[in-house]
Design a protein around this nucleic acid. Structure first.
Lengths: 194, 194
DNA sequence: TAAATTTATTGACATTTGTCAATCACCAGT
DNA sequence: ACTGGTGATTGACAAATGTCAATAAATTTA
């Protein structure tokens, strides 16, 4: 698929959904830079302080953890039209437990922690948009917690098929597995057993 | 323990941490009402739309789910100096999947959805405080997700002992168990096997 | 205080899920 | 078309966790 020439097109569209006046949109855009990534490019490694918040124009970011045994666990999958970062590290400016990887060739906008705070303190409209994004993400995380504490592996997989069917086609099944908190083999068996 | 006469004391103190000027604090307080609960009092039942956001002066709120088999799962435990509600239901004004229970006799402030939005739209300072609360809660929820997808029952219990040791003394162990997403029996065995 | 109720612990066993290893299928590059 | 590599599937088994039942301990209520 061919992306529009203007890398800020999607972002502006996103912003305009939440803003009455359009006058500040260009100010916001000025703080975001544009970047393309290759498949599997690493944007943040464990123990680095996360300096950027990303907006995904196309492609997908994967925020994931690596445990002592070398097992990966996917904290989030961030697709088109969404914001993503290693949030605790970005917000608190402390070393990240998670890494960020560009799963596919991606087209991204990104803003530095410093500029992000400039927007936050100078533009009430940005504070509002950010708050709305936080609310949405928080609600999603609550649902994720609920699925993890109340459902078994099969139920979680079925729930994911209902809420995010595109994930299942789009991402390798070992990532779906560790997003669900189960092993690749268990997921494979769930799929075959109807 | 005897609480101060002014039920807004803790709340004001909380607000003043995040506000430069104190002039709006009384405005905020006006929108919050005061309420005492009995032990085990139910503040919200499943399928009701959650109308209130609570601030806990003393006591504890438990936000929990009930599955088809009658198993309870604790989504959150909200203690002194914290805000709590059935967030997805409160925010989206849709029927709640969770119930809210006052685990102990509690002293609460609460604000209606309507008044909450009045504050949100009329006071940038409230928007800011709310945003800061959201950030904190969101970070906590991310850590909870991480512990659920990367750790086994024993590790989760140990992590809880480190981050919230007071929980373990304070709450019945079956609630700790379903907060961790494990059965009461498994928790009981974890405790005995060191 | 005693009785009644709830909560916690323990054992036996079933189920779920993980681990390791082998095989299979697919794709990328030559 | 071959080849090497990655990802997916399957089997055999091990480990973790859940379930059910019995008992013990603690708490509440009369």
């Amino acid at each position: 698929m061919q992306l529009s020439n203007d890398p800020y097109r999607l972002f502006k569209q996103f912003l305009s959904l939440h803003l009455e006046a359009d006058d500040q949109i260009t100010e916001f855009c000025k703080k975001f830079k544009h970047k393309k990534t290759k498949k599997n490019e690493l944007l943040l490694s464990v123990d680095e302080v996360c300096s950027y918040l990303y907006f995904v124009n196309s492609g997908c970011l994967r925020i994931y953890l690596l445990d002592n045994n070398g097992n990966e666990s996917t904290r989030f999958l961030v697709t088109e039209n969404k914001f993503g970062t290693s949030f605790p590290s970005f917000k608190l400016q402390e070393p990240s437990l998670a890494s960020i990887q560009s799963l596919e060739p991606a087209d991204l906008l990104y803003i530095s922690y410093k500029d992000f705070n400039v927007l936050l303190h100078e533009y009430p409209a940005w504070e509002r948009i950010y708050r709305i994004i936080l609310e949405k993400e928080y609600i999603e995380s609550i649902k994720r917690i609920e699925s993890l504490i109340t459902m078994d592996a099969k139920q979680r997989y079925q729930a994911l098929m209902e809420t995010s069917p595109s994930f299942i086609q789009r991402f390798p099944s070992r990532m779906i597995a560790d997003y669900l908190g189960i092993s690749q083999e268990t997921l494979s068996r769930l799929k075959s057993k109807r």
